[in-house]
């Protein structure tokens, strides 16, 4: 039996917000693949639950008239992979989501939970970062929208104020139209493993130059991180091997990998350097440019 002290099921977002506001110790439970594992380990921080598992308004994927793609926080990774809207417009996110756990986990784990738990290894995070995704939160004070990279504050820490629920993730059309992307998860096992390093790249090309380039890594710092300085240096660069060399020579300056039982810092740095080149190369390839 799980060590649950209080449990309330919400049928709507507003009800969840009210329940969370009434009890400052309460946390939302969506798919439960993190929360229930923590409760299995008798973690005292998850003993008061507001159940958002069955809230229908969190389970939509749609496109607004201006092309913005809106993904409800309660969408599971299986639903994400099956959505034509996602696979046609932002396949890099389906790629990230499909690398998570095994089928049974993906059938219940939600994208909102993956981001809200603040894990540096969240496989949805690097793809969402290169898509410039925004997080929408609703709380007692109303709705707010912030860039995903600002939502992440530290290891396991996100900018979720008390009483707030993540309602959806939003991706503007300018952030995916004309862009191509790729996500690669480097892990010790082929499946059911946490990333040693996760890497996402996205790019946009005009003629022989990159007009847009974005790189993001998981497990390469206290939170999933964008490589801002590298992106700035590479912007407008001619698409050839020197672009890849510039990127792979620069990314470590944007990141802070460390030692853990999974891998040493040195090994992580090696993987980061190699992946930055390989993943960007594949993203360029998907935009019709192949570098031999």
């Amino acid at each position: 039996m799980f060590d649950i002290d209080s449990y309330h099921k919400a049928d709507t977002v507003d009800e969840a917000i009210a329940l969370l506001s009434q009890n400052p110790d309460a946390v939302p439970i969506a798919g439960g693949t993190d929360v229930l594992v923590r409760l299995h380990g008798h973690n005292p921080d998850y003993r008061h639950l507001v159940d958002i598992h069955d809230i229908a308004e969190l389970k939509n994927i749609n496109m607004e008239p201006d092309g913005t793609i809106v993904i409800g926080s309660g969408i599971t990774f299986t639903e994400l992979a099956q959505s034509p809207l996602v696979s046609i417009n932002i396949p890099v996110l389906a790629e990230g989501g499909s690398s998570i756990g095994g089928p049974q986990v993906r059938n219940v784990a939600t994208i909102g939970g993956n981001i809200s738990n603040g894990a540096p290894s969240a496989d949805a995070a690097p793809p969402l970062l290169v898509l410039n995704a925004e997080v929408e939160l609703k709380g007692p004070e109303g709705v707010r929208l912030l860039p995903l990279h600002d939502f992440y504050q530290g290891p396991g820490q996100v900018d979720r104020k008390s009483g707030e629920i993540m309602t959806c993730l939003r991706i503007g059309s300018a952030d995916y139209k004309g862009w191509s992307g790729h996500y690669y998860k480097y892990a010790m096992r082929g499946a059911m493993d946490i990333a040693t390093i996760g890497c996402a790249a996205a790019c946009k090309i005009d003629g022989d130059r990159v007009t847009g380039i974005r790189l993001a890594f998981g497990v390469a710092g206290p939170t999933p991180l964008r490589c801002w300085r590298t992106e700035e240096k590479a912007q407008g660069h001619v698409v050839d091997q020197t672009l890849l060399d510039l990127v792979s020579g620069s990314v470590l300056g944007d990141l802070r990998p460390r030692d853990s039982w999974r891998a040493s810092k040195d090994f992580r740095e090696q993987i980061i350097t190699t992946l930055s080149e390989r993943v960007l190369k594949e993203a360029l390839n998907r935009n019709g440019v192949s570098i031999p």
Binding site: G32, T33, L36, N107, V108
Partner: peptide, 26 residues
């Protein structure tokens, strides 16, 4: 008991889930 092994897998509305990581109320 933590979603790693699948020995507890059942189908819910024909979707496979690990029943050890699934609240009975659901």
């Amino acid at each position: 008991g933590v979603g790693e092994c699948g020995a507890c897998a059942v189908l819910i509305d024909d979707v496979a889930v690990d029943s050890c990581l699934y609240l009975a109320v659901w």
